[in-house]
Structure formats: C-alpha cells, structure tokens
Design a protein around this nucleic acid. Structure first.
Lengths: 140, 140
DNA sequence: TATTGTTATACTCTATAACTATA
DNA sequence: TATAGTTATAGAGTATAACAATA
C-alpha cells in the first residue's frame, strides 16, 4: 500500500506525466482522424503493418476481449484497409493483414504522428539522451 | 510539416513515452474500476472534488460535447456521488458538485492512483528533479 | 475437451441536431 | 437572439456469455 505522502518533486513529475499523456492522446486521435480512423482502428492498423496477426493476438496487444477485435477488423476490412487470411498451420485461426492501401495508410499515419518529435527538438542532444535514460529507469 | 527523419534517440524517447502513456492509462482505468467507476466518471469526479463546475465547464475540461456530460453526471448522480445544484447567479446553469460520499470516493481514488509514484521511487532525488526539468521544457 | 473466432446483448462514451428555459 | 442544459439518435468500443468449427 504505497500511500505514503510523496515529496513535492514526485508530485510535480506525476502531474507533468499526466500532461504528457493528455497531449499524446489528443495528438494521436487527431492524427487518426486525419485518416478517417478511430484511435483503436489506427492502433490495430499500425500493429498489423509490422506483421499480420491472429485475432487472438490482436486482443492481447490491445488488452481487450477477442470479441471486440471482430468488430474493429470488420470496419477496417469494410474500408479495404485490412483482410482476413487463413492460417495454413491452424484452420481455426484467421490472420489479419493490411492490404496495400492499408499499408500505405499506416505509413502516412506514422509520418503524421509527430508527437514529441517537435517538442523534443527544443532539447539539446544531451538532454534528449538524459531524458531517455531517466524514462528507461523509470519504466524498469 | 515536421516529417524530417528523427534521430535514434528521439525515436526511442517517443517510444518510451508511448510506454508511459500505455501504463498510465492501464493503471488509471484499474484504479477507477476498483471504485466501480469508468475512466470518464473518475476523471469528472476528480475534477469536481477540486471545485463544483457548470456542466459546460466540465465538457470543456473533458474536451467533449456538453451533451455527453449530461449522461456522465446522470450516472454519478444515480450512484449518489454527485448532485446538481442551481447557480444563484444564472438560472440556466447547473453546478455539479460531489456529495459527501463522492468526495470520499474521490479522495480514496486519489490515494490509490499511485502511478509513477512507485516507479519514481527508484530514482534518486536528483534524478527526479532532472526528469521534472526535462518534462517541463519538453511541454513548453 | 480445449481453443479460435464469431454472434448476441448490454452498457458507456462519443458527436450531431433539435428542443427548453433562461438570459 | 444567444446561451446552458437536455433529449434523441446513431456509431464505436467494451465485457460477458453462448455458439460453430477445428484442434
């Protein structure tokens, strides 16, 4: 039960992280919307652009129930961005994979996702490295 | 159009921030769920625990349409955590305010929201200060 | 029997548009 | 007329439970 009173610096860091989270989400949703995608759809399309995945694996990555993935993939498939392929090794499995258009959309999405790239540009190279090391240590 | 290729350190910092965001959200939703609240309900209850607000102001803070706030407050009110009060200065306005139970719930929620407090404990005082300064500069 | 994906259902959050009561 | 809040509606994401096909 880590409910000890935190020191002022820790409190401020937590608040700043809250600001970062809010800003990240806003920019992510906006970037997705620019491509007529919801946040969840953008996330899945980005995942699949790295490698095709079984529905089950997508649910695990999203930390949601598999039944939800059906709808998300349905909507991406309707738009021609994703397709379902059989898995030769297991006929129960369906592999979701981006179409050519889906891959292009994922690439444009990645390019337009500049979160923290611009704000980070205001830091010196040494500061960015220091930030990286601190975040690494924080995340364990 | 800031689509210049980012240096490797920047890319890694962006990824780390993505990890922080994911973890923050997971822990926030879990803390809310422990009190039978959704993320949106927890956010609103926390806002109102600082000061009662007109419906319109809540929508602005949440960056959503005012019509959505009606439902969120409805559900909090049904559970006896929030109440709507008239605004003496403008009879069109309704002020949402936590009940006593709502205030207690908000307080317990705050205590259980230990995100980054534990991970931050692994850093030295100097490191936390450095992290604070870097995040401040990053957020401008 | 166990697993994969789907369907059916219900709830929450979301935006849009139309409505009401005030101002 | 303009503003605050609500209602009505529709779409998306979520969890739960039950189901078919396959392992």
């Amino acid at each position: 039960m880590p409910s000890r009173r935190a020191d002022p610096v820790t409190v401020e860091v937590v608040e700043l992280i809250g600001d970062v989270v809010a800003r990240y989400h806003m920019e992510y949703e906006e970037a997705a919307a620019r491509h007529q995608l919801t946040g969840a759809q953008a996330k899945v399309l980005t995942l699949l652009s790295l490698e095709p995945l079984p529905m089950r694996r997508i649910a695990q990555k999203l930390r949601c129930e598999p039944s939800n993935v059906t709808g998300i993939i349905d909507r991406l498939e309707t738009r021609g961005l994703v397709e379902r392929r059989p898995d030769p090794a297991d006929r129960r499995v369906k592999l979701a994979a981006p179409t050519e258009e889906g891959a292009e959309t994922a690439e444009r999405l990645r390019e337009s996702l500049d979160f923290a790239r611009e704000p980070l540009a205001g830091l010196t190279s040494e500061e960015r490295t220091a930030l990286r090391d601190l975040l690494r240590r924080m995340l364990g």
